[in-house]
Computed example of a mutant assay.
Amino acid sequence: MGLILLMIAGAAIFAYWNAARAAAERAEQLGRNACEAAQVIWLDQSVHATGMRLRRNEDGRLGFERTFRFDYSYDGVERHSGRLVLRGEQLVSFVGPVKPTVVPFERLN
């Protein structure tokens, strides 16, 4: 009986670790793509998990919402932090570099 419980606990720990690793890889991919699209330097080539909490998904099931931080630079000198939140593998929040755009100026008459 004790061996079965140990195996169940081991399987649960492995499933949690595997899901956390997959979320970190997805966050890394999203952070890298955002920096590339905004034409900024992605620093440290990694993301850092900063938080995790239980949240309901769109289907009503409980799941983990994980928050990650990454660093980027516009000029290679100043360092800025970006943040993204994943619920499962879905991106639900992003704060970070944006692609520079030019807004045309309109004269008021």
Rank of each mutant, 00 (worst) to 15 (best):
A11H: 04
M52E: 13
A20Y: 08
Q29F: 11
G51C: 02
Y74H: 03
A12P: 03
H80F: 12
Q45T: 09
S93A: 15
H48P: 05
L3T: 13
E36T: 12
E36P: 02
G51K: 02
L84A: 02
G96T: 01
A19L: 13
Q90N: 11
Q29P: 02
V98L: 13
A22V: 02
Q90A: 10
A24C: 12
E89H: 07
N33M: 09
R107M: 07
R107L: 07
H80L: 10
V47D: 02
A23M: 05
L30M: 05
G76M: 05
G31W: 00
L3W: 14
I8Q: 14
G31I: 00
E106M: 14
S73Q: 00
R26G: 04
L30H: 01
E28L: 12
A37Q: 07
L91M: 09
R61V: 08
D44T: 08
N18S: 15
R69T: 07
N18C: 05
V47G: 03
T50N: 05
F94A: 00
A37W: 05
E89S: 10
R69Y: 05
D59M: 08
Y16S: 13
R107D: 04
H48D: 13
L86A: 01
V85K: 03
V95T: 12
R56G: 06
L91P: 01
V95M: 08
G2K: 10
T67C: 08
F64A: 12
G2H: 09
L6Y: 09
A19S: 14
L6M: 13
D44W: 09
G10A: 15
N57Q: 12
W17R: 13
Q45G: 09
F105Q: 10
L5N: 14
E58H: 10
Q39K: 10
